[in-house]
Design a protein around this nucleic acid. Sequence first.
DNA 1: TCAATAGTGTCTTTTAGACATTATATG
DNA 2: CATATAATGTCTAAAAGACACTATTGA
Lengths: 235, 235
Amino acid sequence: MSSLTAPLAPISTCAVAVDTALLTIRDGRLRLLLIEPEPSALRGWWALPGRRVRDDESLDDTAHRSLSELAGITAPDAHLEQLRTYGDPSRDPRGRVVSVAYLALTPFADDPVDPGRARLFDVDELGAPGGPQLAYDHERIVTDALERARAKLEYTSLATAFVPEEFTLADLRRVYEAVWGVPLDPANFRRKVVSTPGFVVESDKTASPGPGGGRPAKVYRRGSATHLHPAMLRP
Amino acid sequence: MSSLTAPLAPISTCAVAVDTALLTIRDGRLRLLLIEPEPSALRGWWALPGRRVRDDESLDDTAHRSLSELAGITAPDAHLEQLRTYGDPSRDPRGRVVSVAYLALTPFADDPVDPGRARLFDVDELGAPGGPQLAYDHERIVTDALERARAKLEYTSLATAFVPEEFTLADLRRVYEAVWGVPLDPANFRRKVVSTPGFVVESDKTASPGPGGGRPAKVYRRGSATHLHPAMLRP
DNA sequence: TCAATAGTGTCTTTTAGACATTATATG
DNA sequence: CATATAATGTCTAAAAGACACTATTGA
């Protein structure tokens, strides 16, 4: 243990699990990965992919395993960050479980999700009628994950975790628009991004326009900056 | 557990502990609470106050208990927030311990710390020669705690957790100066604080000047805002 | 040609920062 | 009075935001 003195009173050990909130963007909308429970369990309930921590496994490894085992997603390059740990004694009816929640972000060009028991939900469906019901305290975790993602887009380069290696500034702008749920002025967005040191680096390529035509866009890659100065403030 | 399916492989339970990084300001300097180990243990090593989680105790409660049992600090109104969970399999030589780290902030006017095995260190001493050696991975936790505090002062009203119920804007400015380690222009600081909605509310009191005289300062209280718009950007 | 998208220019409003000035206390 | 600290005023530079304009593609 981490304290240097011996424990005093009723102390046992806890089951420790990792639950992962994976966000991605599909068709211009922010989506969350959820897992359908076993048929025998409650029907119509959905949960974040979660696994218990193995003996010699780091928490990060457990998060990756939760995605690969439950959704067939092997994304070693995906952004993965710890969100928060949920340890209320009554959060799981089957006993004390301390759950370390992770936030995962993957580019929208990723492989399609394992169609087995996993599904990507539009985050706007979550609270709405007809949307999935979340098990345990996973609604709370999802709320925290969305808040974290929305906030970090402002002052970090996290948005680049939602786009592939090569992207246009329109791609990046659509990330901000999907996560924040607001339209952004393309001209002002471009100016802010290119004037923020280290956010993106221009390549010598251009992307081909869409079916309706349009001027080809320059292709960019991720820059070296992790924190943005100045920040990309939400409108 | 939190996943809806049964575990597959070598899984046991973990010892779960809470380690608390308490920051406060004394004599205009940012300080960290550390606990001296038992005499029998390594001399000259210091650790964050930590306790193992009890069976029916929330993580927040464990954090409070770590402060009260190890430093005699009972601060139910102190700011307490989860920092991060450290779960590397080898982080504690005595076995697998998952530690949930907390960040605690208390006003500088608080009661003095229990002189037993607890001590407040100037954070500038920590890396320096002659400073305390930190046990386990606590140096990493402290680094994360300082980074969190410095960052959150920018875009939240967290600075008010370092001052008593009633404070002057000079008090608040000295918080920013101590945590960030930079001097701030008093005039511009004042303008930003009072123009940020909900950050502080003016009372009808005035504080008495110091021994050298000076115009009495207005007394303020905490406002209702938790997030600052616009943010208090670091110089 | 037009429609669509990318990218630039320009203007206004807002905010940040430097620093002078006034106000009110102590000694 | 001088000195110290609080609070306000003013100016400049930087940034945000609205929006017109140009550039390059597909149909």
